[in-house]
């Protein structure tokens, strides 16, 4: 269809088509040029972090050459960090916190989303709106009262305090996108299950969870990245180094005194950033689906 219209245009206005084609080529070049420039700028900071992390302290303090290249690459900074029990402790803390938070968030949000999407009860509509509003509450709005609450429970300076609080960051959005995914499952499926005598729980585990698996993966990735990257709550609630997760650990503990061990700081930051980047590299489509779900599915 479009090919035939194109050929008619060719036969009628050959000259105009030439300008059209050059215009199109020009647009394509602009597109590629913008993308290349943007990619260079977007990737420059992580690249520079990598370059610095591979340098020795003497090379970092040497001001004579190009700082963007590394002349004598060394893994010394990484080795020192891996040998450092404090840093390994940060890593273990982050892993425990993230695993617990992801598990808690997924259980709470899948159950709640199923009940809100399919089994209406009094006030369920208001609750769904409330869930979305909670998602819009930023962590910096409530960290001071939460500091008091966590303190009164005796959970300051403990990873359990963080495990208790982090779900407030993850659950609302996970519930929200799961409601969207569950609502898109045709009603005929649950009627069929009901006729076959399935209970609500069976319906959830045998039909809804398998069918909405992409949504569940997207929500899991979201919960994972949010709890891995959380910064405000650990900064406020944890001041003892042995209980810190990676984000605040790298930011506050690797920086000591006036002489910064820049190579080590960058190596630490890169290693801490690695898990979300790896997850993203392998599950990019789910990641993006989760990211855009809030507005496009809403």
């Amino acid at each position: 269809m479009s090919a035939s219209t194109a050929s008619t245009i060719v036969s009628y206005t050959g000259k105009k088509l030439g300008s059209l084609r050059s215009e199109r080529r020009w647009a394509l070049w602009t597109a590629y040029a913008s993308l290349i420039v943007a990619t260079i700028i977007f990737l420059a900071p992580p690249f520079y972090m990598l370059v610095t992390s591979l340098k020795s302290s003497s090379e970092i303090s040497n001001l004579s050459g190009n700082p963007w290249i590394v002349r004598a690459p060394t893994l010394e900074n990484y080795m020192e960090l891996i040998a450092n029990p404090l840093f390994r402790g940060f890593f273990v803390n982050s892993v425990i916190i993230t695993l617990c938070v992801v598990a808690i968030s997924m259980v709470i949000s899948v159950l709640a989303a199923f009940s809100l999407a399919r089994m209406k009860f009094w006030g369920s509509q208001a609750l769904a709106t409330g869930v979305f509003l909670t998602y819009l509450v930023p962590d910096t709005l409530l960290f001071i009262p939460l500091y008091q609450i966590v303190g009164s429970l005796g959970l300051l300076n403990s990873i359990w305090g963080l495990i208790l609080i982090y779900p407030t960051l993850t659950v609302p959005f996970c519930t929200w996108i799961m409601i969207g995914y569950f609502a898109s499952i045709p009603k005929e499926l649950d009627e069929a299950a009901l006729i076959d005598g399935a209970g609500w729980m069976q319906m959830l585990t045998k039909i809804f969870i398998p069918v909405a698996l992409p949504g569940i993966i997207a929500a899991t990735i979201f919960a994972f990245t949010v709890s891995w990257a959380a910064f405000v709550y650990p900064t406020a609630f944890v001041t003892t180094p042995e209980h810190m997760p990676l984000t605040i650990g790298v930011v506050s503990q690797l920086i000591r005194g006036d002489t910064f061990a820049w190579g080590q700081i960058m190596a630490g930051a890169l290693m801490a950033a690695l898990p979300p980047v790896v997850v993203y590299a392998f599950l990019m489509d789910y990641y993006i689906a989760g990211l855009t779900a809030g507005a496009t599915k809403g």
């Binding site: 993308l35 990619t39 900071p45 520079y48 972090m49 990245t225 990257a229 790298v250 700081i265 950033a273």
Partner: peptide, 21 residues
């Protein structure tokens, strides 16, 4: 995939890189 990387790195950590820059 490449352009989304700044969003994927936890901001507290990438800001360390900017601080150094």
């Amino acid at each position: 995939g490449m352009l989304l990387i700044p969003w994927v790195i936890p901001p507290a950590l990438s800001t360390l890189g900017w601080w150094w820059m």
